[in-house]
Design a protein around this nucleic acid. Structure first.
Lengths: 93, 93
DNA sequence: CAGAACGATGTCATTCTTGATCATGGAAGC
DNA sequence: GCTTCCATGATCAAGAATGACATCGTTCTG
């Protein structure tokens, strides 16, 4: 599924045009990004929650040179799925 | 940020009522859950991608009993943030 | 179509994972 | 709008799994 699929889904659910659906999706994404940018945790009950955590993984690895790279800066956005999302994932392949 | 914040954001961006905005948000969430339920990978360029991976961590740990718990069933929904999301998270707090 | 982001690989360190419980807060009901 | 209900979060511990950088190919986006 890509962004366009979500847009199409909104089109089907509502009676909006594809353009309008698209701007709605982008608006939501913008809101999410803005929220995460200010270190806010995004929590949607029944779906999941995004949380920005400081990345302490101060060790990268350059496979081409087999050398370690020191990294300490950066953050990571963790997404934890809620109970309803745990319910899905039917067959473990 | 909670679900209501997203709903309010749609209200501001569009001219829909809060109820309509809410159903749009829920429709999107439903689509995402449905996509993940069928093992589909959800990829949103510039935001991030959800991927359903089989959980191989067949060992949990009950600290209260100091005993290992065998788990093999289950899946996990991994979210990897895209480049635009990496750009955010300004100060590492 | 063109451009740019995304995925995977490899090694090693770091983080995550499960599980149950208490408290907090999101969500829904009145 | 306020209150209630129930999901969510943190924790401890040990083991397993993932992440990160760099590059190329592929796919998504406009």
């Amino acid at each position: 599924m890509i962004k366009n699929d979500i847009v199409l889904a909104i089109e089907k659910k509502t009676d909006f045009s594809g353009a309008k659906s698209l701007e709605i999706v982008e608006a939501i994404l913008k809101e999410l990004k803005a929220a995460l940018a200010q270190n806010s945790k995004v929590e949607i009950r029944g779906f999941g929650s995004f949380k920005v955590v400081a990345k302490k993984t101060g060790y990268g690895r350059d496979i081409r040179r087999q050398k370690q790279i020191h990294i300490t800066q950066g953050k990571r956005i963790k997404f934890r799925c809620g109970q309803e999302l745990k319910s899905i994932a039917p067959k473990a392949d």
